[in-house]
Design a protein around this nucleic acid. Structure first.
Lengths: 230, 230
DNA sequence: CGATCCTTTGACTCAAGTCAAACCTAGTGG
DNA sequence: CCACTAGGTTTGACTTGAGTCAAAGGATCG
């Protein structure tokens, strides 16, 4: 919010990843694409570890992720937190946020992130007047729900090893889907504490599981040090 | 909304609970109510423990819960299962189901249940042509997402006691919201195994927690034996 | 009067948490 | 350049909440 000084251009933001994602549901018309482009405001840059919105705030706008990695989380009274989901380029969030009085979770940038706001009126126009876009967006929501379900199953019924494996697979699949990975290696700029807060574990235990997996050559951590972000 | 009293026609199903729920988001017009009534088909009765839909099936129709208690769940390869959410009267499900090729969870009736189908075409008509209804339905979806988030936090970061407490509170609140409970006592026709499958625990451990809570008079299990269902 | 689910109990195990210290960067600023 | 920090990662020793197994009691219902 404060960091937005660096906002890229005067013009509209990059909705390329979103278009790519929606297209994999149904081919969008030229008109659909134009509508999308006109719906988003000028993009905003947010530095890593900066809050994007905070639990309890009144919902201000919806956003499209253009670049980077962010996560939704809730923090508990005792200081622990639970990460609820990750936002990758192309993800929409808070589309229905205006219907509630307050955000019930926080969103923070994990890496440096660029987002493109979508105004309330643009959302209404889009959902009401563009059946195909509207369906595509509902399709995204269904997918997010499915991911939440998967995570619930992981936390409820899988041990630490399986949870870690599951999260890695999710991230690989999602990054492949939006063209951020060609093979099975991804950039995953999360700390072990982040993983722990996602998977309902402690950082110490995540560490042990990761070492085990490395020892078995199930995963390979490679610090490709090129700073290219997500 | 007394309007709906006259809606109990011969053919159509009882959408009273749904109307009540949507109304708590925004007052519905006479027209909205009529539309809802016309959107649902004739109601179907489903006996306890009968499947309503099965993971992998092609989505057939959306439903409104009219009476009873149902749950969505996924079963794992090793026979265990995870319950994802409960459906109470007034809850919609599978509204966006048509957008995926296959159901990714199963739904089963916990008690005897009556549901009212909504055809695909009715959904489209409703979402496209009735902004207020459409918003109300999106609002419901937001609430469901919030419940999923709560459950995720419970499974990820709370111990058994807190998970049980959380689930009971959720059910009390939800039943009060739709007028199924006046005080803080509810009908919760779940076995301890159901609770375990919801909370990521074992039935044995749920049993121990429940006993502890009873000993401390935090809860009181009362077999009010009148067979009145949800 | 079995048969079938649930619930309870007890003894034992184990996956994951806790605590605490050491180690490793990468970044900062003198 | 180098000490100084501050996150993040490892390690080891110990604890504990929840799972497992197995058997015994209720209910409920043809």
């Amino acid at each position: 919010l404060e960091v937005s000084a660096l906002a890229r251009t005067n013009g509209r933001a990059d909705v390329e990843p979103l278009i790519a994602k929606l297209s994999s549901f149904a081919a969008l018309s030229h008109n659909d694409v134009r509508t999308l482009n006109e719906s988003v405001g000028s993009e905003r840059r947010i530095a890593a570890h900066q809050s994007i919105c905070i639990e309890g705030d009144a919902p201000r706008a919806a956003f499209v992720m253009a670049r980077g990695l962010a996560c939704r989380y809730r923090s508990l009274a005792d200081g622990r937190r639970q990460i609820l989901s990750y936002l990758l380029p192309g993800d929409l969030f808070n589309i229905n946020g205006f219907l509630l009085k307050a955000m019930c979770y926080s969103v923070v940038a994990v890496t440096s992130v660029t987002i493109a706001p979508i105004e309330r009126t643009a959302i209404s126009r889009l959902l009401a007047g563009h059946p195909r876009l509207s369906a595509a967006i509902r399709w995204c929501a269904q997918q997010e729900e499915a991911i939440l379900h998967e995570r619930l199953i992981a936390l409820g019924r899988q041990n630490a090893r399986a949870r870690v494996a599951f999260l890695f697979c999710e991230m690989v699949e999602r990054q492949r889907a939006i063209g951020l990975s060609e093979d099975h290696s991804i950039r995953l700029p999360l700390t072990q504490l982040d993983l722990a807060d996602t998977l309902g574990l402690t950082a110490v235990h995540v560490n042990r599981v990761l070492q085990e997996m490395r020892r078995e050559n199930l995963i390979r951590l490679g610090g490709a040090p090129d700073a290219a972000q997500l």
